[in-house]
Amino acid sequence: MTRQRKQKLFHGLCFFMTTLTVVILAVLLTHVVMEGIEWISFEFLDRFPSRKPHKAGIKSALFGTLWVISLTAFFAVPIGVATAVYLQEYAPKNRIMEWVRINIANLAGMPSIIYGLLGLAIFVRFFGFERSILSGSLTLALLIVPIIIIASEGALKSVPNSLREAAYAMGARKWQVVIFQVLPSALPGIMTGIILAISRSVGETAPLIITGALGYVAFTPESISDPYTVLPVQIYNWAARPQVEFHGLAAAGIVVLLTVLLSMNLLAVIIRNKSQKTRTS
């Protein structure tokens, strides 16, 4: 084979692989939609799960997911952003802080199932929160805090130092510089990171199964101490059953889940684009 033909073949191979990746995504999405389409209806969203597939719906899971992500965000966002602010704006350059950073990077890479075990031992058993929304949310909050920290640190790092200098030169104290100048400038980046972190928690299944999200919940939760289920756990529950009808339900549930995720990601993209526009103008 000549060198030129080798080069052409290689180019073709790279192109083929990239196309294949995109095709796989397309196949995955079409497959799920095809399987689920006949099960999706307004009633599906408004009914509780049932032993009879034709009467089953996803209402309790949808509500559970809303409860869990709101509470997760409530815990994780302030802690994550504050940690990032400390690391980026305050932390002295010493070994302890170096160690804290490594520690956070490792937490970000820790398998989600370990967070599940942690939540089980601490929130479910030790604090006695039982199999409640609170237990699940606290567990997910621990899981996404490192993600929020890393994203926020990046956003804070991109705030030009000249802005901090300008504020200091006006006689501002550090908290004023951070709260009134640095954080507002970093906000679009931080928001994007938060949304991506929350969308990660929307899809998490294993930690919630371990901390006790249930497969069958026939009511909508009323308080944070109620038992609950969430979309991915409900999907798992349906997908794990042998009957084909339940696979249809699982697919329909996935369509709902992916719609939620897609809208969140879209929001992140919109925020990013908007901030780029204001910055350049």
Partner: peptide, 30 residues
């Protein structure tokens, strides 16, 4: 303003402690 300056840093540091505590609890628990 000076008081806020000091308390703000303390609050931030407490939040940093959450991550450190998380790792510590994982290790202690396991």
């Amino acid at each position: 303003s000076k008081f806020i300056d000091r308390s703000f840093e303390c609050i931030l540091l407490i939040c940093v402690a959450v991550s450190v505590l998380t790792s510590a609890s994982v290790i202690a628990l396991l």
